[in-house]
């Protein structure tokens, strides 16, 4: 067992982990931050995306020990300080960008990473960036719309309103 210490959503946390413990397991099982979801075992679905030192990472592909000393942000840390939804979260609600909610944490974390890199992405750029996040409910239409709206773009012209 190894002792790891990291900052998660602004708070310093530590725990004892096995060498094989994944960051996703550490967050879910040890820290009880169950907003990070695990939807596959081959690093394809993206439900477990978190930010590690500002970069989006699939928490199921990283060992907890590798995140020792890192700054980790999960979906639980995405709302505004007063508890209200952040711009991206609000856009997902406003545009019905989620249904069952299981892929949603990963989608929001990926969207945040995209908008940091590219503040005004085109539809194609959003779709390309979401390549590593699978949603089975929405057909992506409203997720793409939500992310574009969160970037301040006018999405009223997008079909199916």
């Amino acid at each position: 067992m190894t002792n790891v210490t990291m900052t998660v959503n602004g708070k310093s946390v530590s725990g004892n982990v096995e060498g094989r413990t994944l960051l996703s397991s550490f967050l879910r099982d040890d820290l009880r931050l169950t907003g990070t979801h695990v939807g596959c075992d081959t690093s394809q679905c993206g439900a477990c995306v978190v930010h590690v030192d500002g970069l989006s990472v699939k928490a199921c592909t990283m060992l907890a020990a590798e995140a020792d000393g890192a700054e980790v942000k999960t979906i639980e840390g995405m709302a505004n300080a007063d508890g209200s939804l952040s711009v991206i979260q609000q856009a997902f609600q406003d545009h019905h960008g989620l249904q069952c909610g299981f892929c949603t944490p990963g989608m929001v974390m990926t969207a945040a990473a995209l908008l940091k890199e590219n503040p005004k992405p085109s539809e194609t750029e959003v779709r390309d960036y979401l390549e590593g996040n699978i949603c089975r409910c929405t057909g992506y239409h409203n997720i793409v719309k939500a992310i574009m709206a969160a970037s301040g773009q006018d999405v009223s012209a997008i079909a199916a309103e």
């Binding site: 779709r127 390309d128 390549e131 992506y140 997720i143 793409v144 079909a159």
Partner: peptide, 10 residues
Amino acid sequence: MPRADDLPMF
């Protein structure tokens, strides 16, 4: 599985 870049706007 269909991904975002496999689908159009509907």
